[in-house]
Computed example of a mutant assay.
Amino acid sequence: MASLATLGRELHSGERSFNVIGRRKLFLSISLACILLASLALGVLRLNPSIEFRGGSEFTISQVQTTDQQVAYDALKKAKVEDGARVSNVGLDGIRVQTQSLSSTETSKVAEDLAKAYGVGTDKVTSTFVGPSWGAGVTKKAATSLVIFLVFVSLLMTVYFRNWRMAASALFALLNDMFVLIGFFAITQAEVSPATVIGFLTILAYSLYDTVVVFDKVRELTKGYEGQYRYTYGELVNLSVNQTFVRSINTSVVALLPVASILIIGSVLLGAGTLRDISLALFVGMIAGAFSSLFIASPFLSWLHDRTEAGKTHNEAVAARRATDGELHETGVKDNHGPRVKVAPLQAGGHLGQSAQPKRKKRSKR
Results as ranks from 00 to 15, higher is better:
Gly131Met: 08
Thr139Lys: 09
Thr139Met: 07
Lys140Tyr: 14
Thr144Pro: 13
Thr144Asn: 06
Leu146Ile: 02
Ile148His: 01
Phe149Trp: 13
Ser154Val: 15
Leu155Gln: 01
Leu155Cys: 13
Leu156His: 05
Met157Thr: 05
Thr158Leu: 10
Thr158Arg: 03
Val159Met: 02
Val159Gln: 02
Val159Gly: 04
Phe161Met: 12
Phe161Arg: 06
Met166Leu: 07
Ala167Gln: 08
Ala167Ser: 15
Ala168His: 06
Leu174Trp: 03
Leu175Phe: 11
Asp177His: 06
Asp177Met: 09
Met178Cys: 15
Met178Lys: 00
Phe179Thr: 04
Phe179Lys: 04
Leu181Cys: 11
Leu181Gln: 09
Gly183His: 02
Phe184Lys: 00
Phe185His: 02
Ala186Phe: 09
Ile187Cys: 10
Thr188Ser: 13
Gln189Val: 02
Gln189Tyr: 09
Glu191Thr: 06
Glu191Ser: 00
Ser193Thr: 13
Ser193Leu: 07
Val197Met: 10
Val197Asp: 00
Val197Arg: 06
Ile198Arg: 01
Phe200Gly: 06
Phe200Cys: 01
Leu201Gly: 01
Ile203Lys: 00
Leu204Gly: 11
Ala205Gln: 00
Ser207His: 04
Leu208Glu: 02
Leu208Gln: 04
Tyr209Ser: 08
Thr211Lys: 01
Thr211Gly: 08
Phe215Ala: 08
Phe215Gly: 02
Lys217Pro: 14
Leu221Phe: 12
Gly224Met: 11
Gly224Tyr: 13
Gly224His: 09
Gly224Phe: 11
Glu226Asn: 12
Tyr229Trp: 07
